[in-house]
């Protein structure tokens, strides 16, 4: 048997599994079998280690990697839950890089963190880039004690742009109604980010778990006035992925251009199944699926 690289192996096993699964499926599903192998998923919103308030089912990195593989995730951009509350951010990033090396076999791409509220955060940017060879950074405003109005945000955007790093901004982590009583992270608002991005328009930014205000005005502004990408993990209600990108005929206009929508599961806090099912629930065509599942992510962050 010839040697197969990871992608070839996944493509071949996908074809075999599709044939098996479709043997008992509907005509429409059987028609789908004629299409090329299903694309692997790049999950842009995964975190490793222990959620500060509960032992998650897949907090063990080896278990999470197995879970990602089971659901055909071929690459996961992994942050660290430790970054939410820890003061030793360098230690957080060091452990994250080591875990990605030890467990991912190329599947996990470490996304380090900096905390603008801690002194000398610029050195953490340098170490993430130069020492840990990370392709991006993820910040957690609210849990990390600053909001997006922090005066250093433009400086962080400038530094990530200079170094070619992606900056991911987690707008929320869990429903505020179930926060542990000891914390009150507050609501992270987008307006200061939009203003800061105008001063550094070439910065690569992705917002994570973003729902925005009820009127949708901040999402609209974010899409109109910046180049920020967004993950789907917070998109809720039946068919929402399709409605957000304008896939359904009744949708007047897309709220998010499809080329800026990226798969993100928010695993292991959320079940990985949820985000994948959203792609199945929405009536998306092949091109839209491919863009969200991996194409847009690959444009934002080239392959390692």
């Amino acid at each position: 048997m010839p040697d197969l690289n990871r992608r070839q192996f996944l493509n071949r096993t996908a074809l075999a599994s599709a044939a098996l699964a479709l043997s008992r499926s509907s005509p429409a599903a059987v028609a789908a079998a004629a299409r090329p192998a299903s694309p692997g998923i790049i999950d842009t919103n995964v975190n490793l280690f222990r959620w500060p308030f509960r032992k998650l089912k897949y907090s063990d990195t080896a278990a999470l990697v197995a879970k990602l593989g089971k659901h055909r995730v071929i690459e996961a951009w992994a942050g660290s839950y430790e970054a939410l509350l820890d003061k030793d951010i360098n230690g957080v990033n060091e452990r994250l890089a080591a875990a990605c090396r030890a467990h991912g076999r190329g599947l996990l791409r470490p996304i380090g963190s900096v905390n603008l509220a801690w002194p000398d955060w610029e050195e953490d940017v340098r170490r993430c880039h130069e020492v840990f060879k990370m392709p991006g950074l993820r910040i957690f405003p609210g849990y990390q004690p600053f909001d997006l109005g922090h005066p250093d945000l433009p400086r962080l955007l400038a530094l990530t742009r200079e170094r070619g790093l992606l900056l991911q901004i987690a707008f929320s982590m869990e429903d505020s109604r179930v926060h542990h009583p000891a914390i009150s992270p507050g609501t992270v608002v987008a307006a200061p980010l939009i203003a800061a991005m105008k001063s550094v328009p070439a910065a690569k930014v992705q917002v994570l778990h973003f729902s925005g205000n009820a009127q949708g005005s901040d999402l609209g502004q974010l899409m109109r006035e910046t180049s920020a990408a967004i993950d789907i993990s917070r998109w809720e209600s039946n068919g929402m992925v399709g409605r957000m990108i304008g896939a359904r005929p009744e949708t007047k206009s897309p709220r998010v251009p499809v080329e800026r929508a990226l798969f993100g599961s928010h695993a292991p806090y959320f079940p990985l199944e949820t985000a994948i099912l959203k792609l199945i629930e929405s009536p998306l065509d092949t091109a839209q699926l491919h863009a969200i599942m991996q194409g847009n992510a690959r444009k934002l962050l080239a392959a390692a």
Binding site: A21, R24, S38, E273, I276
Partner: peptide, 13 residues
């Protein structure tokens, strides 16, 4: 459907 859920470890319709 343009995705086969079984390819992703999920139940088909």
């Amino acid at each position: 459907f343009h995705l086969n859920p079984a390819d992703y470890g999920l139940p088909t319709r």
